[in-house]
Design a protein around this nucleic acid. Structure first.
Lengths: 197, 197
DNA sequence: CCTACCGATCGGTAGG
DNA sequence: CCTACCGATCGGTAGG
């Protein structure tokens, strides 16, 4: 038998970041303590610092992991040949899927990014603004083509994005509908709301 | 000249609660300190405690002031004779107005209520659930009457409510549209999204 | 990964 | 409304 490598190296940090996302979502970044986090992982607080440099670094990992995922997806969609309204629908469905599969990271990056230290905070803020501008451009394109009703595009973007965070409460609700039903309900409401009649 | 009464009595607490709402919105409840708050008001931290009992009491005031306002408005609408879709539109417009006039308190009550001490936290949570249930009932009524498309009512409620919090970014944006335009844009998207075709 | 500990800051109180 | 101060807890480090 060949020697079994034990590569769990970067792995420990990923575990801490994941547990950090869960804790930050539950308590908020400011109210979450490193001692809490360590206890959730079954180790002492001091031991965390063998894998991460600071509490803020955990937040950085969460925020930029999420931002990268959304930026990459938008890159794909933007250069595609879908109609503007179909592009928006695809992006909306991606946001919903991310919230279903990954909602603790997504919520933390959405709500707690302001606690990022500089220069990360400014960097993240810029990425966020650019992402929204690119969505607004797609919507304006759809208005020009007559597919989307004449609305203020930046307003439509914030409504669209914030409506998705409503899914948070779906996660812990009892007697819930399936993820696919949830997605279709959201698309029915939001895309019909945008579409010109 | 009659003596000028100086009644600024309950007034001092209101001032602290208002400044608290602004600070809690900006930093989050956990990361906001009483020393910060005192500095914003031009006094020492210890002096705050002549007007309030605790940091948590400020949060209680903010959350229950907001909850009372929304509950009272819903009481009025619920017993009125408007059609279901018109009721939802009126409630949506009220939420938007509250966000425009009063957004720091509204945002804090929405985001930070989980930091409430018991029994306030449970009380608030129950009120929140009941409010959403009452909205869902109106939507279900609208579906039965054929005014609203066949969607999952609780899902529609969370989408509706969360879409309004998107207005937050409108507040500090430059080159912004007017409050009335914002309101009409939101109603166009969300109410058309709900309406059966 | 742990024990032991640091300086800073927290919410809040005593006493005037 | 202030000065002075409390015990608790925080993020993080030293040293092994």
């Amino acid at each position: 038998m060949g020697k079994l490598k034990v590569p769990k190296n970067g792995n420990r940090k990923d575990l801490i970041v994941k547990a950090g996302a869960a804790l930050f979502r539950e308590k908020g970044f400011g109210a979450a303590s490193m001692r809490d986090l360590a206890e959730n992982l079954g180790i002492e607080a001091a031991s965390l610092y063998n894998h991460i440099r600071s509490k803020n670094e955990i937040l950085e990992s969460v925020c930029f992991n999420v931002a990268n995922r959304f930026n990459l997806h938008l890159d794909e969609i933007e250069t595609g040949t879908l109609s503007p309204i179909k592009k928006i629908e695809t992006i909306l469905r991606f946001h919903i899927q991310q919230m279903i599969d990954n909602y603790e990271e997504v919520m933390v990056s959405d709500r707690e990014w302001k606690h990022l230290d500089e220069p990360y905070r400014s960097n993240f803020h810029t990425q966020r603004r650019n992402y929204r501008k690119r969505l607004a451009t797609i919507i304006e394109d759809g208005i020009k083509k007559g597919e989307i009703k004449k609305i203020d595009a930046p307003t439509a973007v914030v409504i669209l994005l914030h409506s998705v965070t409503g899914i948070e409460s779906w996660h812990r609700s009892t007697a819930k509908i399936s993820g696919a039903e949830l997605e279709d309900n959201m698309v029915m409401i939001m895309i019909d709301g945008l579409r010109s009649k």
